[in-house]
Amino acid sequence: MYDHLQFIQQQLGQRNIETALQQFYRLTLDAGTLYHHFYAYNQLLFLTNAEQLPVGTLIHSDCRARIIPKDIERLQGIEDYTGTISIQFPEPLEESRTIEFIQIIEN
């Protein structure tokens, strides 16, 4: 079984990133939301529940941009975002959604 936490630790080690804190970060977006952005500098946010996002959602940050593909449920990898993070939904959300990240605060 693919281990997200082990993957994150390996990534941080390979990239020489020292961690001050690792925790979950949850972001709840209300029904009707089409666009949301927030700032996450000097930290990494690994998105853990991408499959909860509608297909076609664009997540855009300073280091990575990703459009949620149709086969997201068959993908196991998790990816990190940092800086200005924006989430653009293809259509306004019909119901509220909670997006979950593993937040790495850099030392």
Binding site: Y35, H37, Y39, Y41, D62, G83, T84, S86
Partner: peptide
């Protein structure tokens, strides 16, 4: 380092903290 600021409407004034 990039800072993006979203402007939604005409005449809007947006405060940001990063």
């Amino acid at each position: 380092q990039q800072i993006r600021i979203r402007i939604n409407t005409s005449g809007e004034s947006v405060r940001f903290t990063v």
